[in-house]
């Protein structure tokens, strides 16, 4: 969820930049190294970033009648790893602020922290752990994408609660309120995104699995196994 321009008061937006900038620097370092090793990756990463942006600008049909858009961060993290996703996330969030009026410039640090760093990291960890435990690929992808989406909202609620602690209960009090409104309403949407991401992977594996094998998302054996099951 995007925090809009001007919403976070003074010490907090700077603090979130302090949190995000080192991670982005590390991501850029990794990116530079990757690109100098394999030059053909740069165009590929560019189209991946554009893909995330387009994905996030598509409206997802929603249960309540209101529409929400997939964040796509879980998927990106599974495909490209969290460090590169952080760099792509910064660019995508900047474009969203400037093209679609989602988010803002001073709140960019906080938004990058929730949507570009922590959410994708959670997805990546869940994905890696799940694959190690030999659970079905689609189930793992479903959980990774669902939690990436949901954790993003939890982080945003935490950011808001830290900036605006309540009179009576302090940070915990307002965290409960923000979580109640943003995190619980997000649960069905997060599940939708998880299902969507799992379906996307299913179609990709059916049509052209080499792309995923080349990105080292899954091994050829897993593809064969999945195809054997679905055939």
């Amino acid at each position: 969820m995007h925090i809009f321009e001007g919403f976070l008061p003074s010490p907090w937006w700077q603090l979130w930049f302090v949190f995000s900038i080192p991670v982005i620097m590390f991501g850029m370092y990794r990116l530079n190294k990757l690109v100098s090793e394999r030059r053909d990756l740069l165009p590929l990463l560019a189209v991946a970033g554009a893909f995330i942006f387009v994905l996030s600008s598509l409206k997802l049909p929603s249960v309540t009648g209101s529409s929400s858009h997939p964040t796509g961060t879980g998927m990106a993290a599974i495909m490209f790893g969290p460090a590169v996703t952080a760099v792509l996330g910064v660019i995508v969030l900047l474009y969203q602020a400037l093209f679609l009026a989602h988010g803002g410039l001073t709140t960019l640090g906080a938004n990058v922290a929730s949507m570009g760093i922590i959410g994708p990291l959670a997805a990546y960890l869940i994905y890696k752990a799940g694959m190690k435990a030999n659970i079905n690929f689609y189930v793992v992808v479903f959980f990774a994408a669902t939690f990436a989406d949901w954790i993003t909202y939890v982080v945003t609620s935490t950011q808001l609660a830290l900036a605006f602690p309540s009179q009576a209960g302090g940070f915990v009090g307002s965290l409960q309120a923000f979580l109640a409104i943003f995190a619980t309403t997000q649960v069905p949407l997060a599940i939708m995104e998880g299902a969507l991401t799992a379906l996307i992977f299913k179609y990709i594996i059916q049509v052209k699995s080499d792309a995923l094998v080349e990105l080292k998302v899954i091994s050829q054996e897993t593809v064969n196994k999945l195809r054997g099951i679905s055939a």
């Binding site: 990116l31 740069l42 165009p43 990463l45 560019a46 189209v47 970033g49 554009a50 893909f51 942006f53 387009v54 760099v87 792509l88 660019i91 995508v92 900047l94 474009y95 093209f99």
Partner: peptide
């Protein structure tokens, strides 16, 4: 910057 320029085009 290269990455953001190429992304911009492909969007």
């Amino acid at each position: 910057i290269e990455l953001s320029m190429m992304m911009y085009r492909y969007i």
